[in-house]
Design a protein around this nucleic acid. Structure first.
Lengths: 140, 140
DNA sequence: GTGTTTGCAAAGTGTTTGCAATTTA
DNA sequence: TAAATTGCAAACACTTTGCAAACAC
């Protein structure tokens, strides 16, 4: 099971042009499970530590960027001074919980943009990102 | 003219509960002209310097935050590690030029969200933000 | 072996803060 | 004069980088 997953992740990394090193494999195992995940570098680093994996924070940063460059992940910006990395690379949007800092996928089909405006002359659209900021319901 | 604008800004500041100090007045004059503006603290600081206004960067930061808290401006996050302040507080969305870092309003009516998804249980929607990232048209 | 990757510690970036000096009402 | 505001420099959080040691193929 663990081995099977390891092999699976290793070939996945190779397919994306990345050497399956011990650290990259371990992080990939944490990241690419069943559920899509949204992590910051610090979070993933802490998680790896708890799982007994020896990785430096710098390597976590490097790895997340490499994964992003290779198309395994994508960045999401919701707050200045913090980068979230999302394992779901399909086009979709997010809820961002202002109090917990949690990022949640908006189920596809639940958000529809009726009309995308034409980009300014001489420019092309690179991507459309919708962030819905949420807070805990205030009892009144 | 200059005086008129000064008086205008002064009463505006007072209306929003802020003492019209020399620095705040000068920054308000730069910010609240005809056009809506999108600035970072550094940009505004540089601009003030060029205009011969003596303000420290810390005060520019403080002032922008005070303006935001009082409802004169609003923050826009498009990039980790940089905060944009927008003089347009009405609900609207943005183009963000990845190469120049320029932020542009999307004319209202040009973008329509057909359906806003229900927020997760126990939460309320605080705001919806759409960012359309653009790049210079690639000649082919 | 050779080139890639890692980890550390240092440097970098944009932002915030503590506090004495200054300004405002 | 009392309270608010400013400016400086130091502190901050997060991220990136340089480079020698370790690793993958």
């Amino acid at each position: 099971m663990q081995t099977a997953q390891g092999i699976h992740q290793a070939s996945k990394l190779r397919d994306f042009g990345l050497r399956p090193t011990r650290q990259r494999l371990a992080l990939a195992k944490l990241l690419f499970g069943e559920q899509p995940r949204h992590v910051t570098a610090e979070q993933l680093h802490r998680e790896a530590e708890c799982a007994g994996i020896k990785v430096s924070l710098a390597t976590v940063y490097n790895t997340l960027h490499q994964f992003t460059q290779s198309g395994l992940m994508r960045e999401v910006v919701v707050e200045s001074g913090r980068i979230y990395f999302d394992t779901n690379t399909a086009p979709h949007h997010h809820f961002y919980h202002l109090e917990t800092g949690q990022l949640l996928d908006i189920p596809s089909g639940h958000l529809a943009i009726a009309e995308i405006p034409p980009p300014p002359p001489g420019t092309d659209i690179d991507g459309v990102e919708v962030i819905i900021r949420i807070t805990d319901k205030k009892s009144k």
